[in-house]
Design a protein around this nucleic acid. Sequence first.
RNA 1: CGGGGUGUAGCGCAGUCUGGCUAGCGCAUCUGGUUUGGGACCAGAGGGUCGUAGGUUCGAAUCCUAUCACCCCGACCA
Length: 502
Amino acid sequence: MNKPAKNAISPTRQENYPEWFQQVIKAADMAENSPVRGCMVIKPWGYAIWENMQRILDAEFKRTGHQNAYFPLFIPMSYLEKEAKHVEGFAKECAVVTHHRLEDNGAGGLRPAGPLEEPLVVRPTSETIIGAMYAKWVQSYRDLPILINQWANVVRWELRTRLFLRTAEFLWQEGHTVHATAEEAIAETHQMVHVYAEFAEKVMAVPVIIGEKTPGERFPGAVTTLSIEAMMQDYKALQAGTSHFLGQNFSKAQEIKFQDQNNELAFAWTTSWGVSTRLIGALIMTHSDDDGLVLPPRLAPAHVVVMPIYRDDETRNEVLAACKNLKQELEAIRYHEGSVRVEIDDRDLRGGEKKWHHIKRGVPIRVEIGPKDLASDSVFVGRRDEAKSNGMPRSEFTASIASVLDQMQNNLFAKAKAYRDARSVDLKTESEFRAFFATDDDSTKVGGFASCFFESEEAVKPLLDELKVTIRCIPIEQEKASGTCFVTGRPTEQKAIFARAY
RNA sequence: CGGGGUGUAGCGCAGUCUGGCUAGCGCAUCUGGUUUGGGACCAGAGGGUCGUAGGUUCGAAUCCUAUCACCCCGACCA
């Protein structure tokens, strides 16, 4: 049977966006659901993207003075109870270990043996366990700041899960820092949200808005939560990273105290910040098209896939040798923090099938080399962002590869930004707001980012609940201004981005 | 937790109402052949505790009871 002639992915984005998202992941072979409810298996192609993210972010964390460490997966339940808002926020979604060891149940199966004295919570986030250690480590102002990050998995027992966007277990990094002053901690919080924004825009080619969360959307126990917000192709917002100023809430709950330079005992100021495998979801939903995954070159596990074309064993060796030679030459070319990454695909598959395989996986550049190309010392090149392939002299290809990759990277960002800006509006009244978020039966693609003055969360909540819209953030870079609340009509200086969200 | 739905080959499904050939189809896989600068074609093959347990019956994928799992809508989602 022939595959659809037009698009590799069915349904298309227009037809059914959520289903399209699942199909892109499947077609690119990035991840799949596991036998464990809500938990995904990240397959090599997906994991390689994560490794690229890790490597680049980790270098940024180190550059900004942080070190990596590792803390336990299990947290004594009592630790979580110490900060009231924190418990409230996380209790419902915690997985809890109540027993240790297994024994024969007498029916050929197993059963848990000994109950634990105190249940252990599988970390939903590590503020409490890390704070408990910090309390021991911090005695003097000379012990500060503590700037530590950990790469880990966390578990949040969500009721409804979706690959990469919300899974019961996910991979992330969490930075946890301790400072002597509020100013320093606040500066850290801002520094890290800017690291995330820079990463999103420069590496992921995903335009983001940096903003502050309103009290209702804040991390439980935080004084201030900063986030980066991105717009997906269905115009919904995705929170892609957060950075929290925790004030002294956790240090008081956990007794993180130190003697300052005036010989007085003071509670420390803490922060935490994190990004997760959800970034991969953001990547997919920002750039991919109806032919599958589209990867920004800086994160692509392979920049170039080389496909040898041959009919018989005679040409095979010759063509393969040329492919290996090209791979070697390309790999000697520097590209950002490494070199050009090249794969040779000499699997025994038909050419068309191979080509589509790599299109669906989002490889930026495909190169085909056959006997005719050898004769003319040229290569046949296809770009993921262009429908047609073109022949060109081999030397021209190798000389331009780095700049072509950069150009593709920049194009992706520009395209995503234009897409977002086209759906970002300023709205002044409730009727404008309702019209903007009105549900269209023919399409799930309605709404976008609405920038509006609002009096308070309470004042707009009923309308937001009705329309399933949330306050994403109060952008930190917007100009100070005053206007009138789009719901109550009363004067206010608060202005936020409103959107439907994942 | 409330409402609805589905469990049959790796994936997608038909068959269930009305019990009865050896449980079938498409895709995928494997083999052989013809092909090959573009998602091939022909022929053949392998692959199933019909979610699980019990019951009714000469006979159960099909009827009955219980149970488990998953999906959709809602609630929930710092």
